[in-house]
Amino acid sequence: MALIEIENIEKHYGKNGTNVKAVSGISTEITFGEFIAVLGHSGSGKSTLLTMIGGLNHPTRGNIRVDDLDIYALNPEQRADFRKEYIGFVFQAFYLIPYLTVLENVLIPFAISDLSAAKRNSRAMQILEKVGMADKADRLPDELSGGEQERVAIARALVNEPPIILADEPTGNLDSVTSAGIMQLFADLHREGQTIIMVTHNQENLKYASRTISMKDGRIDQLN
């Protein structure tokens, strides 16, 4: 059974008479446990595709179903709950909150959870252990390297145990050695059954993914 079904989606941007088709007619299915790399040049529509899968960007046409939920047929509250239940986002720019410690940053998704404080903390520490950041839980983001900050951002995305991780250029700000470490972390998560969709323009990253979707001018170029 497909976890994500993408059916002929299009996204048009533009106003004042200009109309840019960022994504034009993409259909694919993604199975539970796949590690998809979405490869493409800047402007090929890969980030738009990612945000549409994440319930953040309404397609102009077409449907996206996740776990059989037509996510853009949901009402806004349901779609917010969909993101909370299903999606973990990792961004190139980390977006850690500078005045919160590593642990507090990872605890943020729990702000809308029913778990007890003790359970939240133990869950957050467990995830920090997994990404190799447990010993720096009380540091501030400033005191961390770029790679370490990205690990914290990944921990934050994972802490709610979302079935899908969406990563937009997660190594875009990192040097090649640090990038390899982060990619290895994604590969480990994938081996444990995590579904990951990662946008990248770095060919080096493709070897960690199970499948590559290559995009060009808003369309799928080829399937590997």
Binding site: L3, F32, G33, D68, E77, G193
Partner: peptide, 22 residues
Amino acid sequence: SAAVGQSVLSGKRERVLGSNKS
């Protein structure tokens, strides 16, 4: 993977659709 998927996803769809309740 399908079996693992089923266990990870269990209950999520109901919680999303239950947002009507709120």
